[in-house]
């Protein structure tokens, strides 16, 4: 357990810029959310749609590149080759990496979700269905970010940097568009969870079966 914490800490330290960026973006969105919540008027809707798609693009690129960066840095600097000479297994290295990645995603979302729920409780009428919608949207965003991150992990563990990154981003964009068209809900969450599980199985298979 302690070893896992050390490995997670190492991953976080190596990708600290992603955590800082996630925190800063989260803070920015919290400010925007508060501002919109207190100054909302109907003319803002088109602007909000633009903001929504910009945010989605940013998250897609950000979390896919986090996955790519983690795997590419490892392969390029032969980090796992070194760690494998210490008393850790490849599974532990990969698990620590994925946990660190998910922590980065949560670093962005958790403050934002908390703020949204607080604002909802302060400003919105107490209708339970709104709460369910908020919960669905939060789960949807977190799952889609994890899915993009998994695509990054898959594409990062290949030789070369430019084309795998490009193909990873393209795939993530296609995925995001598909789920946006479908909209948040239980069925899309189930599909995303299946996608994430399948991607992680493939990442593990690739990571544990290739030469370091």
């Amino acid at each position: 357990m302690l070893k896992m914490l050390i490995l997670i800490k190492r991953e976080i330290y190596d990708h600290l810029h992603y955590f800082i960026a996630a925190l800063m973006l989260s803070a920015l969105f919290i400010m925007v959310s508060i501002s919109i919540a207190y100054n909302f008027y109907s003319e803002m809707v088109p602007m909000l749609i633009v903001v929504f798609f910009s945010v989605m693009s940013l998250l897609t690129i950000g979390f896919t590149s986090l996955g790519i960066s983690q795997m590419y840095t490892d392969k390029n600097r032969r980090i796992s080759a070194f760690l494998s000479t210490l008393p850790v297994t490849r599974d532990q290295i990969l698990t620590a990496r994925i946990i660190a990645g998910i922590l980065a995603i949560l670093t962005f979302y958790v403050p934002l979700i908390i703020t949204t729920f607080v604002l909802y409780n302060l400003l919105a009428p107490p209708i339970p269905i709104y709460e369910d919608v908020l919960f669905d949207i939060s789960a949807f965003f977190i799952l889609i970010s994890i899915a993009c991150y998994c695509i990054g992990l898959l594409c990062g563990w290949t030789p070369g940097r430019f084309f795998p990154s490009l193909s990873g981003l393209a795939l993530a964009c296609v995925l995001v568009q598909l789920v946006i068209v479908k909209g948040p809900g239980l069925s899309i969450s189930a599909i995303l969870i299946l996608f994430i599980i399948a991607s992680l199985i493939r990442v593990r298979q690739k990571f544990t079966s290739t030469a370091l």
Binding site: K3, A81, S84, T85, L86, P87, V88, T89, Q92
Partner: peptide, 13 residues
């Protein structure tokens, strides 16, 4: 190799 066995091996690559 389990981690316990790796811990008993030193390596200079």
């Amino acid at each position: 190799l389990p981690a316990e066995i790796r811990g008993r091996i030193g390596c200079v690559a």
